[in-house]
């Protein structure tokens, strides 16, 4: 190992309390998953921000292309009938 390598990059997800999902908080470098969890504990939960940590190596994430944002999300733009407010019902109707 002539040139020391960067440790792999990990994305960190923290569950802040029971009932909430894990949320992306940032990334850090660590040599393996166990170290990533320990470093995430020190870097992202110094003030009781979490009760559970997920780590995933950044290279394993597949992301959508922001350049294709329009074509990817367009199809839901012209479907107002998916929302309850699309349906105009008489005011005297209750509990619906």
């Amino acid at each position: 190992m002539e040139n020391s390598k960067n440790w792999p990059l990990w994305e960190i997800f923290i569950r802040s309390k029971r009932g909430l999902s894990h949320k992306h908080v940032g990334s850090l470098r660590a040599s393996d998953a166990q170290m990533a969890i320990e470093n995430a504990r020190d870097v992202y939960t110094r003030r009781q921000e979490g009760i559970s940590i997920w780590v995933i190596e950044s290279k394993n994430i597949t992301a959508s292309d922001p350049g294709e944002q329009d074509s990817l999300f367009d199809p839901s733009g012209d479907k107002p009938y998916r929302h309850p407010t699309f349906y105009k019902l008489p005011d005297e109707l209750k509990n619906i």
Partner: peptide, 25 residues
């Protein structure tokens, strides 16, 4: 605790720089 925060702040920032394609090393 303050100094440890500063180490942490350095780490947040290096990883923010890396999102732009910079190499930490």
């Amino acid at each position: 605790a303050k100094i440890q925060d500063e180490a942490g702040h350095g780490l947040y920032l290096y990883s923010a720089a890396e999102t732009l394609g910079a190499d930490r090393e």
